[in-house]
Amino acid sequence: MNPALRLLYLGLAWLMVGLGVVGAFLPILPTTPFLLLAAGLFARASPRLEQWLLNHRVFGASLRLWREKGAISRRAKTTAVSLMAASFALFCYFGSPSPLLAASVAIAMVLPALFILTRPAE
Rank of each mutant, 00 (worst) to 15 (best):
M1S: 13
M1F: 10
M1I: 12
N2A: 07
N2C: 05
N2F: 15
R6D: 11
L7K: 11
L8K: 09
L8N: 14
W14H: 08
M16E: 05
M16H: 07
V17P: 00
G18Y: 03
G23W: 08
F25K: 02
F25Y: 07
F25T: 10
L26I: 12
L29Y: 01
L29Q: 07
T31Y: 10
T32Y: 04
P33C: 00
L35V: 01
L37W: 13
A38V: 08
G40H: 07
F42E: 00
S46K: 01
P47T: 09
R48E: 15
L49R: 05
L49S: 14
E50H: 08
L53T: 03
H56A: 06
R57T: 10
R57I: 05
R57C: 11
V58K: 10
A61D: 11
A61G: 05
S62I: 03
S62F: 03
L63Y: 01
R64P: 04
L65N: 08
W66M: 03
R67Y: 08
E68M: 02
K69Q: 13
G70D: 11
G70P: 15
K77H: 06
K77I: 12
T78Q: 14
T78I: 02
A80D: 04
A80E: 03
V81C: 00
L83K: 02
M84S: 08
A86V: 15
F88N: 10
L90Y: 09
L90N: 13
F94R: 13
P97Q: 08
V105K: 09
V105N: 06
A106L: 10
I107Y: 06
A108P: 14
A108W: 14
A108R: 07
M109Y: 12
M109C: 11
M109G: 14
V110D: 10
P112V: 02
L114K: 00
L117N: 10
A121K: 08
A121H: 00
E122L: 01
